[in-house]
Amino acid sequence: MRNPKANNIKLGAFVLSALVLMIFAFFIIGKNNNIFGNDFRLKVQFSNLNGLTKGNNVLFSGLQAGTVKEVELINDSTIEVTMQINSKVKSFIHKNALAAVGTEGLMGNKVVNISPVKGISKKVEEGDLLKVKNTANMDEIIAKLSKTNDNVAIISEVLKGTVLRIDSSAILKLINDQSIGINLKASLKNIYKTTSNANEMTIGLNHLVNDIKKGKGTAGLLLTDTSMASTLKDAIVQIKAAGVNANQMTNQMNTMVKDLNHELTNGKGPLNRLLKDSLTAKNISLTIENLQKGTDGFNQNMEALKHNFLFRGYFRKLDSKKKEEQSELLKSSQKK
């Protein structure tokens, strides 16, 4: 009060500092709120806001780009959100950019995320309607997780059973048994031997087949000689002809036998008399007796003739000829 001028200066400093602070605070807040900057509006239509309200932040690729200015229900499944976007970001947002409702951190405030999409598109203008990118919200994720959990529980239960069965199965015992390995080794050796033998055999067979092809050996001759095949054919033809002849002969014989039979039964002809007539039989036996007697007599006559000096030389010659023939026969058999 003593020095009003100095007091006024102090008062002025006090008032000014307070006013500057206030304006500064307003400016900072206004910068956040985009009231002083020249900005523009974009719109998005969501079906579910998940709690997004007026004043929430709008992020473009994670960068603070503006705030939610207005939330308006259009119908039961559409809510229009008007966003105030900083004009600095305007030249970077394209018309095909996608908007989604997100969360700051896990439990934080809701935000609108605008994310750019690859591809050529015009830049946004005042009042453009952006497309919505569907993202899973927390509840959906948790619901899906619980389903996944159930599935994992089922799978692990089944796996447990399977593992137990494998543990107690014979296959595992087989795997653990060492003697099986040794046996298997021996078996494999045998198989190896067998196969090598089989190989040798096939080589031999191969040679044989080659020989046969070339016409070596009897089999080769049989299979390859064409002349023999023709002779064989001829022979078969002849055999066939012989068969036919034989057939004819048997036919003839058959008729003959039939005739004979007929004659025999009917009692006609000489045969019937020969076979059936008892008188003839007596005569025949008589004849044979007579013949016997005749030959005996002839025999005696012949003996007498041999001893007769006239015919003795002839009989001697007959004997020596017989002896020569016999010795030649012996010699030829020894040679063979």
Partner: peptide, 16 residues
């Protein structure tokens, strides 16, 4: 005005 400024000084500045 003079008294107003004087009071402002006393009330405002002196209270700071």
């Amino acid at each position: 005005n003079k008294e107003l400024f004087n009071q402002c000084y006393i009330i405002g500045y002196r209270s700071l």
